[in-house]
């Protein structure tokens, strides 16, 4: 009997070890390739690395230089404009499409996938399509001229002051359908009994939305904001495919800045410091959100 118990004990101990052994490779990968690499890049941002990593510490010099560069301030300003417009326009379009679709619309099953399919495309494909539509010589402007609207002008993509808005336009095209799906899921989760009760009390549709429905969509608003803002900070492919950062530097974003300073201009220290700023921006949004999400679960 005692022997059997000892054997069972060993097996139990082994059984408790196996999960940890199986989890270990994934964990090691994440610790090294994500957190180790983050630390390495942070370290590099305090060194005088140029074409190759150097371990010679120079304090905050790269950060000081970074914020003196007009190139960087353009990228930051562009990100501000882009993120603000992209997030707010996507939210407005997504919310209204969801509310409209929620009115017992015939053909909803057809419309929903149409709104959402751009999300399945690569930003490079989106960029290719819009680059051409926005090209005044051949795209929308040209077509309007052919249709007889001679004075029609839509050359934003060639215009330094307006090019950033074309990036917003293409990005909204790609992701607003996704925001619609998030809000629609939120709307479908609202209990109809409350709405019916409020209607019997004589509440107007406007008041129903303002007082009952929108407040209940708070989690959807929060998720949309978090997802869209992290997409905005990470935006890289779309700019490369649509404008290449131009004309001039008119559509340069932190992500394109980091790439060109690190890999084309051989200013790795400055490139690393710009990546650290990007990470901190995203962490400021994501960490509290994930923390709250994980705590709720318990």
């Amino acid at each position: 009997m005692a022997q059997a118990a000892g054997g069972a004990d060993f097996r139990t101990r082994l059984q408790h070890l196996i999960p940890k052994i199986v989890l270990a490779p994934s964990l090691a990968m994440v610790l090294v390739f994500v957190y180790g690499f983050i630390l390495f890049t942070i370290y590099l941002s305090f060194t005088d690395s140029r074409i190759l990593p150097s371990f010679n510490l120079v304090g905050f010099e790269n950060y000081v230089k970074l914020f003196k560069l007009s190139h960087w301030s353009i990228a930051i300003t562009n990100l501000g404009v882009f993120a603000f417009l992209y997030i707010s326009i996507c939210t407005v379009i997504g919310l209204f499409l969801a509310i409209f679709l929620d009115q017992k619309i015939r053909g909803e099953g057809m419309l929903r996938p149409i709104y959402l399919y751009p999300m399945a495309l690569s930003f490079i494909v989106t960029g290719t399509a819009w680059k051409w539509l926005l090209d005044p010589g051949i795209g929308i402007e040209h077509t309007m001229h052919l249709w007889g609207w001679e004075s029609f002008a839509f050359d934003w993509i060639k215009n330094r002051d307006y090019a950033i808005y074309t990036v917003v336009l293409a990005a909204v095209w790609q992701t607003s359908g996704f925001v619609m799906a998030m809000f629609l899921a939120g709307l479908r989760g609202i209990d109809n009994e409350i709405l019916k009760a409020a209607q019997m009390d004589g509440a107007s549709n406007w008041n129903l939305y303002r007082r009952i429905i929108l407040p209940q969509l708070r989690p959807a608003f929060l998720s949309a904001f978090v997802i869209l803002s992290h997409l905005a900070v990470k935006s890289y492919d779309l700019v490369i495919a649509l404008t290449g950062g131009g004309p001039g530097r008119a559509t340069e974003l932190p992500a394109t800045f980091m790439y060109s300073y690190t890999f084309s201009r051989n200013q790795m220290g400055i490139g690393a410091s710009s990546a650290v700023i990007m990470l901190m921006t995203i962490a400021a949004i994501m960490v509290p959100y994930l923390y709250a999400e994980l705590r709720e679960k318990k």
């Binding site: 390739f33 180790g36 932190p254 992500a255 790439y259 990546a275 994980l294």
Partner: peptide, 20 residues
């Protein structure tokens, strides 16, 4: 541990390009 894995989905990949 899960939180650490989850956050890794959202990092801007520029932060790992150089060491990678």
């Amino acid at each position: 541990l899960f939180g650490l894995m989850l956050f890794s989905c959202f990092i801007p990949f520029q932060i790992v390009l150089i060491p990678m």
